[in-house]
Write a protein that binds this DNA or RNA. Sequence first.
DNA 1: AGCAATTCTCTTTTT
DNA 2: GAGAATTGCT
Length: 684
Amino acid sequence: MGLSKISNEDLDKEKEILNQLFRYSDKFESAVFNSGAGSGKTFALVECLKYIVEKNRDRLKDHNQKIACITYTNVAANNIKEQIGASDIVDITTIHDRIWHIISGQQSALLSLHIEKLDNEVEELDEQLLNNSDYEKYRELNKDLQEHFFQLMLKNKNIYNKAYHLKAKEFKDAMPVEIREDYATLISNVSKFKGLVDKLFKKKRDLDCLEKIIKGEKGYKEVSYDPMYNRDRLDKMRISHDTLLEYGFTLIQKYPKMRQIVIDSYPYILIDEYQDTANIVVKIMNSIEQYAKEIKHDIFIAYFGDSLQNIYDTGVGTKLKQLHPNLATVTKLYNRRSYTEVIDVANKVRNDEIHQKSIYSDSQGGSVKLYSGNQAVVSKFIDLCVKQWDIDMKNPLHCLFATNQMVADYSGFSNVYMAFKNAGVYQGIGYKQLNTELLSHDIIRLGKVQSLLYRLIKVYTEVKEKKQALRDILPTVEFRNMSFVDLKNLIIMLQSLKGNTLDELLVDMLGKYKMSSDKTYKLIIEKIFDIDEISYEGVLKYFLNSLYDSYNEEMETKQIIGEILNLKITEILCWFHYVNRDENKEIYYHTFHSTKGLEYENVIIILGKDFGQDKGLFELFFKEYGKDIVQDLPKHERYERGRNILYVVVTRAIRNLRILYIDDLDGIKDNMEKIFGKVEAFSI
DNA sequence: AGCAATTCTCTTTTT
DNA sequence: GAGAATTGCT
């Protein structure tokens, strides 16, 4: 058993690194704590928090001041909260929560920013309508005709929305005759037509909103932030994540008083995973620090992270020091996670000045190897590792893939993924919502149909598995008042539910709902479906409306949503277990990105030359490895992108790591071997 | 043939 | 919502 012995000397050295950081906090010299994967960054942050609290508790309390700890996710915030314990002088939240907490009270200032943003949006729309070549035909109409067209569209808004996602031919047919005939030139190109109408409608909504704000109408006096939406709805007085940061930044730039409030409330600001936070956040921090210096107030801002682990395009990454100059640097080179063999490879992937070293003196015993193969051998490859590493539930294997599609395929629910991918609402721009609404581990984020399926499968499996207390399924009051016989009958009824496909299960469940007089059964079904019309037809209608906002009226409902209805219950179960993050498995499948921050004993990475749309991303990394390409900026940026992702996945492994490269090795084999050692072909 | 219109395809993640 | 690929039109 390795990774257990640490010499006193190394422990002291590690402590000294932390002390450096503490001293900067004493001197109010803002700093960045840089260190690679598995070095204990969060540990350092937590220790730093504790140190500042211990040392300054009374002073902070007297001045009614706090320490702000900013995390990237709510999960991270809760994690740190658990480690710190309850504290009345530390505020641990995401940046969005913190900023909203600070600015939400300044509604009059927010309102003027909001008016400005609406004005800008209207201006931009006008600019488009005036200059974009797509709308030339519209500009050729005289003002009266333009207005007439607009009024006509407004009158037919519902028809327009309903037909929106239909194919061009069907869309045209669905539109009223007047439009097809009187404005034939506009509708001859459907996509330009939609672009035009969308802009006209948007402009109207914005102008209406501005008017209501000025009139001071109810609901138009305050701006709200809704973290559940990914897009602004300015006309509904609702902003989303990016605009929240933007408003925060602007307020802080515009009003010295706002800066003063922050400085007075939070003389210490610690930022976790800085590489992921948006540029604008760093700009806010920098502007706060500059102002503090101006007015001769003390402030300590510390960034914790690793620029190489920036795998989201929006993160600040290496730009930190440009946006926030003059930061002191503390670097930690010890690794507390992995065996030496893994650390060595990770160092080579990084290929920079950070050469990690295990803090343990017994750190030998890991194993890293890269094989070449193809798509067809992936399963066999996994099987082999399972045997070699004695994989079982206590010593599970974690397989990492680039895309959710691959994860779905190997986790046994590829048809579920496909069926939802093909649904109307996820076509076009909606495809971005697919993964959130289908694969989110946070149940609240699942789409309507997905969430219904989740509830349905939950009851279905829990009853079958018998281990589940019915208490969780039943509304408590009804449960308590039931007689033993009734309860027994209910369980029998629930356990008798059957069906190979979703369709069959729905027929059975809702058929019994119709026939049965068992009140509790009815209640359970009502809770699961939670829709107005609880019947087979009602559910189909709900599916249709939730998954397709446009559909050809002549087609049968069952035909349109057939792909969903025909899903096998066994596959939906696989999906359910994935969403639920159910454990007790031998093999777990993840996307590269979702494993960030986690660690596993045994890791397999399935790697190809591409990363989705970014064709040849990983191939480029291997091809250009060790070469000086800084002057070719686009190439260098892609190189870094590939490298960062690869670095993150490689460093998830504690002991055993295998990479299966499933594309051609031409021109990259030599560099691959520089990193991973001898490459072997894997075939069956 | 040549241009216009339509359809297809597309990563990861959080707030 | 952008860019490529395919189909349609003249």
